[in-house]
Amino acid sequence: MTEALDIARRRFTAKVYDPAKSVTDAEWKDLLEILRLAPTSVNYQPVQYFVAETEEERAAVAAGVSDFNQERVTKASRAIVCAVPFRPSEEHLQAVYKQEIADGRYAGHEGEENMDAGRRYFVGLHAVTSGEFFEWASKQAYLGMGYLMFAAAQMGLDTTIMEGVQFQKMDENLGLAEKGLASVLVLAIGHHDEKEDRNATKQKSRLPMDAVIHRVAK
Rank of each mutant, 00 (worst) to 15 (best):
M170Y: 01
A182I: 02
A200D: 12
L174W: 04
V184E: 01
L174V: 02
G175E: 03
L181S: 00
A177N: 05
E178S: 05
F167P: 07
D197Q: 07
K204L: 12
A177D: 01
R198K: 15
E172K: 03
A188C: 13
V184T: 13
K195D: 10
K179Y: 00
S183Y: 02
G190S: 12
K179H: 01
N173K: 07
E178V: 02
P208N: 15
L185S: 08
L176C: 02
G180L: 03
G190C: 11
V186M: 09
E172V: 07
A188E: 14
Q168D: 15
G175P: 00
K202N: 10
A182F: 00
D171A: 09
G175K: 04
A182H: 11
Q203R: 15
E196R: 12
A182K: 11
N199L: 13
N199E: 13
H191R: 13
D193S: 07
S205G: 08
M209T: 11
E178M: 01
T201D: 13
D193M: 07
H191W: 09
A200S: 15
G175V: 04
K202M: 15
K179C: 00
E178I: 02
S205W: 12
T201W: 04
L174D: 03
A188K: 11
E172A: 11
K169M: 08
V186N: 06
A182R: 11
A177V: 06
A211L: 09
M209I: 10
L176S: 06
G190D: 08
R206W: 10
L176D: 00
I189S: 11
P208Y: 09
M209Q: 08
D210S: 08
N199D: 12
Q168P: 06
K179S: 01
H191E: 02
A182N: 10
L187T: 10
A200Y: 06
R206H: 14
G175H: 01
Q203S: 14
N173A: 06
L187E: 03
K179A: 02
K169C: 02
G180E: 03
D197R: 08
A188F: 09
R198H: 12
D193F: 08
E194P: 01
E196T: 05
